[in-house]
Write a protein that binds this DNA or RNA. Structure first.
Lengths: 335, 335
DNA sequence: TCGCCTTTTGGCAGCGCTGCCAATCCGGTT
DNA sequence: AACCGGATTGGCAGCGCTGCCAAAAGGCGA
């Protein structure tokens, strides 16, 4: 622990070997607990490590090791502003920490070109695996990922073809289930309120599934309000007010997610509209606050943590694989 | 782009040099745009790179380079469940992406021992800098960080001594300002509702500042309810119900953060308590939903993104430095 | 055409570690 | 005392790249 380094230079494995009076290979074997070594050697190395405050250099280790890939995984997510993605990371890190594998993250801001650049940047660290969000990528991204020679896991969305492994649920099915729920409850004049679909493709898939199920019931969406920018309660509140101003006769609104729905709920409270008597609200994600509302929000709970965990478990595997973790419709009291 | 690699082996800089008919050093210079090279050499290298689908190996690059530190930063945060930390990461990555520096993250779960382990693990990647949360760490963590020879930036909290650079705001001052606001508004029977303080030390500092300011006004906290586990709207709702059951005479409640306050607000709505007439609510963080509530939440807005950005800016700097980014009291309509 | 200076270039050591291989050690046999 | 097999050990090449240096190539005025 004492700082007896020659200033400016960190201890190396060679220093440890000298200090412990053993060979480099022995130190390496002891530190990785790989191969056989005597108890005595183990002790001397441990002492020397403590004395020098040695921290192994994994850059060198990974470079020298078999396959030259690092015990790191690269993760590209579109945003950190939407709780969904931190939740995903949460599941991931909880599973990966157990193995001592850290995540290197990149945030694409929903921009496919940025995603491609991030994938290239992350691959340059020779990660053991690459985790992407969604199934839609630039051709260049796919080419890079395939050529990179790493396991690729795509998270969240199962509606389409994956590069390698896919872990998530069907957004179309979520939309369809949501629509069927509203129809079964007797709602007929249904509107949609969402954030930018061109950007959040999965929200678009949900809406597509929603409309299909609606038309199967002989209904059609009465109104659609798309707000620019990311989803948020503020956007949901303003959006619902705008939607109702244009279509006061709606009896239910399907939101692109719970954040938007919370804003919608606030708009109803502020305007004194009875929920769900005057207007029913239906969300998506099953965030924490949904259950704490005076009337629990009707929504669909997605297995976000579990997706992260399963994605981590997938890294070990081989070959293409799709894991559909499903979702759970929460009846709630707003629809 | 075509996949003409000898199977299983990724192209190396030497391959590119051969393909382009130039020396390795020239390729290196071209790729890093460092040193001088002819236009012709630049073109030939660019072509070879494209032809081979070459992705540089930064493990090797960092190992060979000066100082042998990687263009990576290590980040340790206590949690991903609380929006605050993703926001911090958001600020960080937005600033760092511009420089092409990715973050390697570790999540400590508010456990100092885990934090220490993560710091050791991250240092083994020889990051250019280390970003920690808060000022309280194990002695071992501090020793590692100091010996690691990297710039250390501690984020969020400025109430205490930092290792190197510190970027954040004073949690004590936040608590004091919150108390003064409630006192000025005429509230006298004030309670506190928080999540686990032993774990979230910064919430504890806010409460300490709050109580000091209260006593300076000749008042004292009437009741304190601490809920185990992390903060959440559900915990806030259950907590407020418990608190009011024990102390029905409170006229204001200070919450450990906005999530808890939102739960409290829902509890009031459900119980038909007028806010702030019957009970005033005061939060912390200034999250997005606070402004969208029918009555905007009275809270304190913290510069989370800015902390991340400034922390990134700090990495370049030298020597100890403390940046207090302050906070903003949002009057709102709930207190 | 020649010499001189600047730009451009390639060779090669070495970053810190791991994997391989051959050397050494130890305990029990013959 | 010589021998044997397994456990333990150290030396060293090499992972892919960068930094340094000396060599080669141009440019230009005399």
């Amino acid at each position: 622990m004492d700082d007896i380094q020659p200033p400016g230079r960190l201890a190396t494995l060679t220093d440890v070997a000298r200090e412990a009076g053993v060979g480099e290979s022995t130190v390496s074997r002891v530190l990785r607990n790989h191969g056989s070594y005597s108890k005595r050697a183990g002790e001397r190395v441990a002492e020397a490590v403590a004395r020098l405050g040695y921290v192994p250099n994994r850059l060198a280790g990974s470079l020298a090791g078999q396959g030259a890939s690092a015990r790191l995984v690269g993760v590209v997510i579109p945003s950190l502003a939407n709780v969904v993605f931190p939740d995903l990371l949460r599941g991931l890190t909880s599973a990966l920490d157990a193995e001592g594998i850290p995540c290197v993250i990149g945030v694409s801001d929903y921009d496919p070109d940025r995603e491609e650049a991030l994938v290239a940047a992350l691959l340059s660290w020779r990660p053991a695996a690459l985790l992407l969000t969604g199934l839609e990528h630039n051709p260049g991204t796919v080419a890079l990922a395939k050529a990179g020679g790493v396991r690729v896991v795509e998270m969240i969305d199962t509606d389409g073809e994956g590069i390698d492994a896919v872990v998530g649920f069907s957004n179309q099915a979520v939309g369809a289930a949501s629509a069927r729920h509203l129809v079964a409850r007797g709602y007929r004049r249904i509107g949609y309120l969402g954030h930018d679909l061109a950007v959040d493709l999965r929200a678009g898939k949900r809406l597509a599934g929603f409309e299909v199920a609606l038309s199967e019931a002989g209904l059609a969406l009465q109104a659609k309000e798309i707000r620019p920018g990311p989803s948020s309660p503020a956007s949901g509140r303003a959006g619902l007010e705008a939607l109702l101003a244009r279509h006061p006769d709606l009896d239910a609104v399907y939101f692109s997610n719970d954040d938007m729905a919370l804003g919608g709920y606030f708009a109803c409270l502020a305007a004194g509209l009875a929920v769900p008597g005057r207007l029913a609200l239906f969300g998506f994600n099953g965030l924490d606050f949904a259950a704490a509302m005076p009337q629990p929000l009707s929504t669909v709970r997605t297995p976000r943590l579990e997706i992260g965990r399963q994605a981590a478990a997938c890294l070990a595997g081989e070959g293409p694989k799709t894991i559909d973790l499903g979702f759970k419709l929460i009846e709630g009291a707003t629809a």
